[in-house]
Every structure is written in C-alpha cells, then in structure tokens.
C-alpha cells in the first residue's frame, strides 16, 4: 500500500497523468463537438488508429515528423468526412457507419503496415518521427527541479490544454459554435432561422475527426515512437464516456479525461510493482464504469433533492 501511495504522490506520476490523458482529452473534445452538434461520433477510436498509422508511415517516408502529423491529421479528418458523407448525404445510420469505420480502421491499418513492413504487429522496426517535447524547444526545462519532468511534455499535450480553451471559446463565443449547438439541440429551430443544418453537422464531424486524429498522432508519435496493432486500446470509447461524465462541457470533459488518465497512469505505475498485470490493466476501464455509475447516482440524488425541495414548497 505504501508503495502505491509513493507512486501516486510522485512527480513522475503527475507527469504520467498528463502524458496518458492527452490521447483521451483530444478525442473527448472532438466527441464533445460532435455530440453537441447532434451527430455523436462513435468512430473516434478508428479515426485515432488511422491517424496514428498514417503519421508514423509518412514520417518514416518523408523523414519529417511535421509531415507525419499533417498526414495523420488529414487522413483522420478525411475518415470523419467519409462518416459525415455516409450519414448526412447517404442517410446511413450514424452508429452503424461509425462501427464499420472502426472495424475497417482496425484491420486496414495493420494490413497497410504489413504491406509496407512485412510485420503484422507493429512498425517498431522502422525509424519514425516524433513530435517535439518542450525540452526540444527550451532545453533547460528538463533540468528544473521537481516541475521539470512535469513541464517536459510533448507539444501535443500542451496543445490538448490550449485546444480545450479554444473549443470552449468556439462553442460559446463564436457564431459557428453557437449555431452548431443550436443544430444539435433543435435542428428544426436552427433550420427555420436559415442555419444550414447539414453544413453545421459536417463541421461538427470534421472537427471531431481532426481532434481525434491529433490524439491518434500523439499516441504513435509522442507517447511512443511506433504504430502497433489496435494501439488505441479503447481510448476512443473512454473519450466518449468522458463527454457525459464531463456534463457535455469542455472544462468538465477535460477534468473527466484527466480522471480517466489518472486511472490509467496508476495502472502503468503499478505494473512496475508486483501486482498481477491483468488486474492492473482493467483499472482504466473499471474506473470508467465506476465514474459513470457515480455520475448517475449523483444525478439521481440531485433530482431527489429537487423533489424534496419541491414537496416542502408545496
């Protein structure tokens, strides 16, 4: 137990939380935008995989991490564009189309990896690019005592926090953001004031794809330096849970993603101790379920409290 507490209260743990939360925050923000636009994007998982794979392969091919990032972003966004086209133009069921994309991404990415490398599990034999860490930009940062390791994060981790604020600003203070929310809540109302519902839903899905793609690129070009089969490991779905746990608000979503990230970081740190790995590996998923249950209970209690107040007033 003492070992566990030592782990949790270490700076390494805090740094790890930020590191493992990043690929949850980014897709969760994307999912949030799609949810508020009324077109929840279940394909976050697949989009992340595709972006992760494309990023690695292009960075190998071009010897440029930046071009890898752009390729991952482009292909991930394109995937969400395909989803949007299926749903909004061809009227396919959004959930089914997204499931299809997830399955396609899982098999398709590893198929491409096999074609390129002859390896069916990962690209670890290739020398791929990595997005810079803060240390690569401000070399002295890692030498700072205590906060050095915490601050020395990948720039995509910094991007996740900046993007949280940006998404909040977009949704609540800009015209397209407000229109997007109006479309999600009452499409008829939006249409009646001349808002192009389909265009806003395209926007919602494209933005969600781009954010999920960033999360995917981070996984293969920041968190680690290779692409592996199904390396997203359900993060795209945990991100969906974070949307609701975060009460469908950017700040709440950030906090929820950090909570899930902390659970995962704990699992990783405990992996170093003598705890059965199977048990450790279920921590992030169990934490997700527990958090959602607690959320539901809290919600019910709020309702019950309101009810009591109502009765007293009556």
């Amino acid at each position: 137990m003492e070992q566990v507490l030592n782990v949790v209260f270490s700076t390494a743990f805090l740094a790890a939380v930020l590191r493992v939360s990043t690929p949850l925050i980014l897709p969760a923000l994307g999912g949030l935008i799609s949810e508020l636009g009324g077109v929840i994007n279940i394909a976050l998982e697949g989009i992340m995989l595709i972006a992760a794979c494309a990023g690695v392969l292009v960075s190998v091919w071009t010897r440029s991490a930046g071009l890898g990032l752009l390729a991952g972003l482009a292909l991930g966004t394109l995937t969400s564009l395909v989803l949007a086209f299926f749903h909004l133009n061809l009227k396919a069921d959004l959930i089914l189309a997204a499931i299809a994309l997830n399955l396609l991404a899982s098999g398709g990415t590893i198929f491409v990896v096999y074609l390129v490398t002859g390896d069916k599990s990962s690209t670890s034999r290739l020398v791929s690019g990595q997005m810079p860490f803060l240390r690569d930009i401000i070399p002295t940062i890692a030498d700072l005592p205590t906060i050095g390791p915490i601050l020395n994060q990948n720039i995509l981790t910094y991007a996740a926090f900046v993007l949280t604020a940006a998404v909040a600003f977009f949704l609540y203070r800009t015209r397209p953001g407000v229109h997007l929310r109006a479309v999600g809540e009452n499409p008829e109302a939006a249409r009646s004031v001349g808002i192009d519902v389909r265009r806003m839903q395209y926007l919602a899905l494209i933005l969600s794809g781009a954010l999920a793609a960033l999360g995917g690129v981070y996984l293969s070009m920041g968190y680690v330096k290779f692409f592996a089969r199904d390396m997203t490991g359900g993060r795209g779905f945990i991100a969906l849970a974070a949307i609701y746990l975060g009460a469908r608000h950017p700040l709440g979503v950030l906090v929820a993603a950090l909570v899930f990230g902390a659970a995962e970081a704990l699992a990783i740190q405990l992996g170093n101790l003598r705890v059965p790995t199977q048990l450790v590996q279920i921590i992030p998923y169990a934490a997700t379920i527990i958090a959602l249950v607690l959320y539901a209970i809290a919600q019910r209690q709020r309702v019950a409290a309101r009810q009591r107040k109502f009765r007293q007033a009556a």
Partner: peptide
C-alpha cells in the same frame, strides 16, 4: 411547434 433552442 415552436422553433426555439430550450437551453439558450
């Protein structure tokens, strides 16, 4: 049927 956004 009113064309309003309830939470706005």
């Amino acid at each position: 049927n009113f064309m309003l956004v309830p939470s706005f």
